[in-house]
Design a protein around this nucleic acid. Structure first.
Lengths: 205, 205, 205, 205
DNA sequence: TGGTAATCGAGACGGTACGTCACGTCTTTCG
DNA sequence: CGAAAGACGTGACGTACCGTCTCGATTACCA
């Protein structure tokens, strides 16, 4: 295969000498990971060799950038999820329901990958940090703002604990999407609505 | 190593001829899995060879009993968790809080293993089935009964959806224990109390 | 590929437990080495992976038996050379010429491999030992006997140093066959004759 | 590392444009090769990357000058050996013994490298050519002259084959020095003398 | 009581993937 | 434009496990 072109990655970094790292290779690797996952390869059976072959890249080129499979997977997933959705401000209830139900266009792959990140996130503090910063915290922050707006508007009680409310809203949805924790909920198309209703009533003014 | 004795396992099964399977080997294998996990071996780096060596058992003896690592791990975890706790019936609130905070004596190992089961549970329908039957459903059932008792006693509104309430109660605790999903909640020793309070107010009569 | 059958190798050795090593695999590996060499693969470009693939064997099966490529090559060559030729006893001169010119049926491969053993023999004392015992010494011994018979018959001077004579007879032939050390000798079909004549005259009675 | 100065090599060559090649780099590379060998790195484990690093040179700078490792090694060895010794003319016997026993000051490295050249010399006709021209032929030529002088002086028979005599004299010494072909000769400090005596007697007038 | 049959620990089997290393080439910046 | 630096695709290295398959040696049941 002909070698990848050479747009440098990290142009302002300390490394200035030598041939710069190819951004095309970088992208090709991340794309290969997501492609293979989309084709049904499970995260456990996903091999670095297959990724390298699919990306048309040497294994060393992957290991030059990421410490291991988990590291790579994490970045691929962060790239996949993209920025969190923004509330429209109609009402706390409507905003919340929308936030809990938005599904990105490629979320099919995300649903497959996310459960596989749990072991890694549980084990590595670095993975945990990335995961929190890139995925969890931005989404929590959006919900905090919605709740605070509700408090300011008098919809919600002033003394409520925003963190707990956020966790209570997201957790059931997350577990349901990820591992279908309670099969009895499978029929609920309006699960988000019901969760929001219970929590909002629980913290209403 | 000297061979394990041979108290038969599955004494009433169809296999009647030949040497019966050693129940000592069975136990030794499960113990080896839990020991290795307790010693800090992650589930991903846990190898069948290490298990066999630790248990003083041939690899074939493991594969004769379980289909693979996931299968074995699941059984080890079920054995570890034991039966779900029983409510004492004081009040819905007190029972719930107790159910959400009980920690078995060996739960240190369980916390380590559980996140690693998520990928497997997400992928394999058989693992999902076992996990639901042996771990999730029994615990959900206990909580359902508490809630129904609350309805019968007039503490809770009659029309509430028990399944949703159960999921809303457990999910934040589960995610917190397993992956510390919201780091802001780390300081809450009374997290269970607060979650229960919000939900109960949300579904109060 | 179906697994190789299971005639044990080293039947009297210390290892008695476990599945015995397959002698078929052993043979297949050595054959693969010689086949690849015969097909023109140089010793430097000969890879363990190619050997394993050709032999239909896992790489571990090779490394279980030999420490590395050199070790394996040495055994393959010893197998290739076979036992040294035997003199017929006509006369010292005729016997010597025959010994110096005999070429085994597969010597084409031997000529290719032998020069490649020199670095290894020079570096590893173990390789040196095997090479001496299996290849060099048996051939030297045959020549010693011929010379001693010549002394006993009065053809050769009694005080000659047999070791030096042997080295002087073999060395020019060896260097010529292996690296064509002196290109001016290329045309000599009767090189062995001439070498023998000079040495015999030099040590004649 | 600071760049090497740039005294041009080949000042009169066709390349006139651009920066001339640094003769310092050339020397540094050859020195690096010999240094690494002297430090015990075997020829097989000697890597171009290590040479470049030791010489403070980019790999491309090496490949710009030599086709590969063998090419480079050959030049390093030729540089190491230096010109062949000159006979003093006392007598054929004394000259020969001196020629066969001279050991250059750095021959320690030469002894290590020479056996490693055999595979290369056997395989590559280009390596063979360089080796013959730079190392073997000059030394053979010196010995031819000594022998011819002996013939002219009536010391040696007129009809002898000089090429064969040369090969017979050098070969046992070469094999002994390089691979200790016959361990029984290890104790001979006067091996050269004995070899010369046998050959001279064999070709005496 | 002696044969039959399945299991035992042990470890070799053909494989796959690992993470590293070196190859020889290519692409930067610097002098 | 040559220099160093170092990334590139390639491919072999030697190791670790995978899940399967012999081995000889134990057990139990059943005749």
């Amino acid at each position: 295969m002909t070698e990848l072109a050479d747009t440098p990655v990290q142009p302002g970094a300390a490394r200035t000498q030598g041939r710069p790292r190819s951004s095309r290779a970088h992208e090709a690797i991340l794309e290969a990971v997501l492609d293979l996952l989309a084709e049904g390869v499970s995260v456990e059976t996903l091999s670095m060799e297959a990724i390298a072959a699919r990306a048309g890249v040497g294994k060393a080129t992957i290991y030059r950038r990421w410490a291991g499979k988990d590291d790579l997977l994490l970045e691929a997933l962060v790239k996949l999820k993209g920025p969190p959705p923004q509330p429209e401000g109609d009402s706390v209830r409507a905003d919340m329901i929308r936030l809990l139900t938005v599904v990105g266009p490629k979320d099919e792959r995300a649903v497959r990958v996310m459960p596989c990140l749990f072991p890694e996130v549980h084990r590595s503090s670095e993975a945990y940090r990335i995961w929190q910063e890139a995925m969890a915290e931005p989404r929590r922050e959006v919900m905090r703002q919605v709740l605070r707006r509700g408090i300011a508007a008098g919809e919600l009680r002033a003394g409520i604990d925003v963190e707990i409310a956020v966790s209570m809203l997201i957790s059931p949805m997350l577990l349901h999407r990820m591992v279908r924790w309670n099969p009895a909920l499978d029929g609920y198309e309006d699960l988000a609505e019901q969760v929001v209703d219970v929590v909002l009533r629980g913290i209403a003014a």
